[in-house]
C-alpha cells in the first residue's frame, strides 16, 4: 500500500486501479464460467442418470419412506422377537468385525513394511521406491468387491475371501498414507544408528518407528472403522458376516422384515460405536496422549 501511495501522480494510481478492476472482472468471469459449467454438468448428468434408471426421481421420491416405514412397523409389531433375532445374528456380526480387524491388522503390517520401502531416505534401495509406489497404487485401485468375488469362486463363500480382499486394499492405502508420514520423519536418529553400525531393520525399528507410531496407529484405527463398513458391504455380495444375513433377511420380503430390522439396528449400533470409538482414540493418539 505504501508503494502505491508514494507513487508519483494520480495517473499511475488510475492505471493500477484499472488493472486491478480488469483483473478482478476477469477472475469473476472465469469463476462464473466454471460455476455455470459445473451446474450444467450436474443437470445434464442428473438427466442422463435418471434416463437410464428403472424408476424416475419424481415417481420414486414419494415412495422413499415406504420401505423404512414397512420395516419399522413390522419391527414394532414383532418387537418381542427383536432381541432374539439380534442374538441369532450376533455371531455374524462378530464375524464381520473380525474380518475388518484381521484385514486391518494384516494390511497395516504389510503397509508398514511397504511404506519404508516406498519412502525416500529410508528405502534400502532407491529403485524400490517407484516399484513399491506403483504396487500400492494398483492395490488401492482394485475395488475390494472384484478380489472378493474372484476369490469366492476359488475358495468358496465365507469370511476369508472378504478378509483377503480388504487386507490387500488396506495394504495399498496404508502404504501411501504411512510413507507420507515417514517422509516427514527426522533422519537424525537413523544416521546416529547407522554410525554405530545398526542394520537396516534395526535403524527402522529403533530410529523411525518410534517417531511415526502415533500417526501410524491413528491411520490404522481410522482404517479399521472404514473396514467395518467395507466388510458389511462385502457380506452383502456373498462373503459372509452380517451383510450376508441382511441379504437373506431382505429376500424374505414384506411381512418378514422384522429380522432385517434387527440387523439394521445392530449394524447401526456397531458402526456408531466404532465411529465414535475411533475418533476418540485418534484424538488421544494425535493430541499427544500416550500411544
Amino acid at each position: 500500500m505504501a508503494d502505491i501511495a508514494a507513487s508519483p501522480g494520480p495517473a499511475a494510481l488510475d492505471r493500477v486501479r484499472r488493472d486491478y478492476l480488469a483483473h478482478a472482472r476477469q477472475r469473476r468471469l472465469y469463476s462464473g464460467l466454471l460455476l455455470a459449467l459445473f451446474v450444467a454438468l450436474m443437470i445434464v448428468g442428473f438427466q442422463i442418470a435418471e434416463g437410464r434408471n428403472a424408476g424416475g426421481f419424481r415417481s420414486g421420491l414419494p415412495q422413499i419412506l415406504d420401505f423404512p416405514a414397512n420395516v419399522v412397523s413390522e419391527a414394532w409389531r414383532d418387537r418381542a422377537q427383536l432381541p432374539g433375532h439380534m442374538l441369532r445374528v450376533l455371531p455374524a456380526l462378530v464375524e464381520t468385525v473380525n474380518i475388518a480387524a484381521v484385514s486391518t491388522l494384516i494390511g497395516a503390517l504389510a503397509g508398514l513394511i511397504l511404506s519404508l520401502f516406498a519412502t525416500r531416505g529410508l528405502a534400502p534401495a532407491p529403485w524400490l521406491i517407484p516399484v513399491v509406489r506403483r504396487l500400492s497404487d494398483f492395490l488401492r485401485a482394485v475395488p475390494e468387491i472384484v478380489v472378493a468375488l474372484v476369490l469366492i469362486y476359488i475358495l468358496g463363500g465365507g469370511p476369508v475371501p472378504a478378509m483377503i480382499a480388504i487386507a490387500l486394499h488396506t495394504a495399498g492405502a496404508m502404504t501411501k498414507l504411512f510413507s507420507e508420514v515417514a517422509e516427514n520423519a527426522d533422519l537424525k536418529p537413523v544416521e546416529g544408528l547407522q554410525s554405530v553400525g545398526a542394520r537396516w531393520s534395526q535403524r527402522m525399528m529403533l530410529g523411525v518407528l518410534p517417531q511415526v507410531a502415533p500417526n501410524y496407529l491413528s491411520y490404522a484405527v481410522l482404517r479399521f472403522e472404514i473396514n467395518v463398513r467395507a466388510s458389511a458391504i462385502l457380506g452383502f455380495v456373498g462373503a459372509g458376516g452380517i451383510g450376508y444375513e441382511l441379504r437373506n433377511a431382505m429376500t424374505f420380503g414384506i411381512g418378514r422384515f422384522d429380522e432385517a430390522a434387527a440387523i439394521f439396528v445392530l449394524l447401526f449400533l456397531t458402526i456408531v460405536v466404532f465411529d465414535q470409538g475411533s475418533s476418540w482414540l485418534r484424538n488421544r493418539l494425535v493430541a499427544g496422549g500416550h500411544p
Binding site: I48, A54, F67, L246
Partner: peptide, 27 residues
Amino acid sequence: DFIRGVDGLVWTIILSRAFGPGPLTGA
C-alpha cells in the same frame, strides 16, 4: 451422525427400493 451410522449399504438398499435399479439410485 445418524446418516453416517446407517451406512452406505443400508442407504443403497432403501433407495433402490424406491427408485429401482440404475445409476440414479447409485448416485
